[in-house]
Design a protein around this nucleic acid. Structure first.
Lengths: 231, 231
DNA sequence: TTTAAGCATTGATATTTATCAATACGCAGG
DNA sequence: CCTGCGTATTGATAAATATCAATGCTTAAA
C-alpha cells in the first residue's frame, strides 16, 4: 500500500461518488480535507471483513473483488467494486463493521473518507441523505436478484449471468481480460471451479463465447442472455 | 379487505415503526392524517410485486409472507413481515415499484402511510433519515446472510436455520403454530416441499423437534443451532 | 535450465437434491 | 356420513452438482 497525497481535489473529481453531486463546493472541500488516498497491488486487501468501519471507501482507479468469508473457509464473491460507487457496505449504520473483505484485482487507487463526515451531511442535507438511501437501495435490490438467481437458476444460467455481469457492468465491453481465476468465477456464480471449467468449455464449443486463456469474448450475446434468463 | 377508520393515532401507537421515535408529536399527527388502515384475511394480497409504491406499509396486527415471483412461476419467500417494521422494500428510492408481493398469513391489520410524507421527513429531519438508512441497512445485511447460507449450506442446515428464524424472529417462542405449508417452508428455505417433509421427519426422529401437524416445538435447540451453523 | 508451485483441465465417482408417481390424510360442503 | 380437494407423506428414480484424483500447463524462482 502506497500513500499518495497529491491527488486532485474532490471538487473536480471525475470518479467520485454520484451522491457527491448533492454537495456544494464548500462541502466538497471539507470532504477533501478529510480524505486519505492509498494505492494497492493485485491481491492486496483494501479492508477486511469484521474490521471497524472508520472510512467510506471509493476506488478512483482499478477494480477489486468484494467477498464474504463464510462457513468452512468458503468464500462468496458478492461483486466487483469499481469507481463512482461507495464501497463500505451495509454495516455502516448497523454495527460499524465491515461485513465483507475487499481485495484488489488490478492496481487500485482507493480514496478513504472519514465516515463521520459523510454521516454529518445526512443530518444537514436532505438530498444527500436521499442519495445515500437510493445508493443502498440499489445495492440491496441487486443482491436480491442475485439471490433469486442463485436459488432458482441452474449452473449454466448462473455462469451466463456472471459473464454478462462482467461484460456489461464491470468492463463495459463484450471482450475483456478475465481477471478472475476459475476458482473466483465459481465463488462469484456459486459453483465448484471444475464446474466453471466444464461450462465454459460448453459455451466455447457452442460458439457462444471465445475463451482464449486470459481473454474472453462474447460471440453470441443473445444466446448467452437466453441461457441466463431461462436458468 | 375491510376499511377501519377508528384506529388510535400514531402518537400512541405501540406497533409503529421504530423510526417514528425520531418524529415529534406534530409530525406524528401529520402522519396520522395521511394514513389509511385496512384489514386482510389469510391468503389476501396486501400489495403485489411490480405495482407502484404509493404508500409505506406497516402491520399493526398479524403476520404476512413476502415473496418474489421468479422465473418459471417459482416463488422465493424472502421473509415474514410483522409489526414495528417498514414493509415496502428497496424499490422506494429506486423505481418506486414493489419488488415483492406480500400476502397475509393470519388476519392482518395494515397501516398505509403516504410515501411522500415519509420522504418529506428525510429532507427535514436528519435523525429520521438516519433511522431509515439504518432500517434498510439491517434488512440488506439480513438478505446478505440468507444469501450466504443458501449458497453454502446444505438442506438440513438451511431448514434448521429457517426453523430458528421462525421461532426467534417471528414468534419469539420455541413452540408455535406452523402457519406455513411444506410448500411455503420450501420456498423460504430454498428446497422442494418433499425435501422439507423428509428433513422434518429426520429432525423428529432425532428428537430435535416435535412436529405435531399444526404445532411445532423445538426440543433440542443447541443441536438445531449446530446443524444450522455447520450447514 | 531445472524445479516447484499454482492454476486449469479432465474423467470417474459420490453426494445432494429435485422430480415423478402413488398413496394417505384431513377437512369442508353437500 | 360420504365426496372431493388440497396438502402431506413416501418410495423410486433421475438430474444436478460436488468431490476426488490424476495430469497437463504456465510461470517464476533457484
Amino acid at each position: 500500500m502506497v500513500e499518495n497525497c497529491n491527488a486532485p481535489c474532490c471538487v473536480n473529481c471525475e470518479t467520485r461518488w454520484d451522491n457527491f453531486n448533492n454537495l456544494n463546493e464548500d462541502d466538497l472541500n471539507y470532504v477533501c480535507e478529510n480524505r486519505h488516498i492509498a494505492e494497492f497491488q493485485p491481491g492486496e486487501i483494501i479492508f477486511k471483513q469484521g474490521a471497524p468501519i472508520s472510512s467510506a471507501v471509493f476506488l478512483t482507479k482499478g477494480i477489486a473483488k468484494m467477498y464474504i468469508e463464510g462457513f468452512d473457509n468458503k468464500r462468496m464473491i458478492i461483486g466487483i467494486a469499481k469507481q463512482n460507487k461507495l464501497i463500505a457496505g451495509p454495516g455502516t449504520y448497523v454495527d460499524e463493521r465491515h461485513h465483507y473483505t475487499v481485495s484488489a484485482l488490478t492496481d487500485v487507487t482507493a480514496c478513504f473518507i472519514k465516515m463521520d463526515v459523510l454521516k454529518g451531511f445526512v443530518h444537514t442535507n436532505g438530498k444527500f441523505a436521499e442519495g445515500w438511501l437510493k445508493d443502498i437501495s440499489e445495492k440491496s435490490l441487486k443482491t436480491f436478484y442475485r439471490f433469486l438467481s442463485h436459488t432458482q437458476k441452474k449452473m449454466h444460467g448462473r455462469l451466463a449471468e456472471t459473464i454478462l455481469y462482467l461484460a456489461d457492468e464491470v468492463h463495459g465491453s463484450d471482450q475483456f481480460t478475465m481477471l478472475l481465476s476459475r476458482q473466483e468465477l465459481g465463488e462469484l456464480s456459486g459453483m465448484a471451479k471444475e464446474s466453471v471449467v466444464r461450462i465454459l468449455k460448453d459455451f466455447n464449443e457452442d460458439k457462444i463465447i471465445d475463451d482464449k486463456c486470459p481473454y474472453i469474448k462474447i460471440l453470441n450475446k443473445d444466446r448467452l442472455k437466453m441461457i441466463s434468463n431461462m436458468g
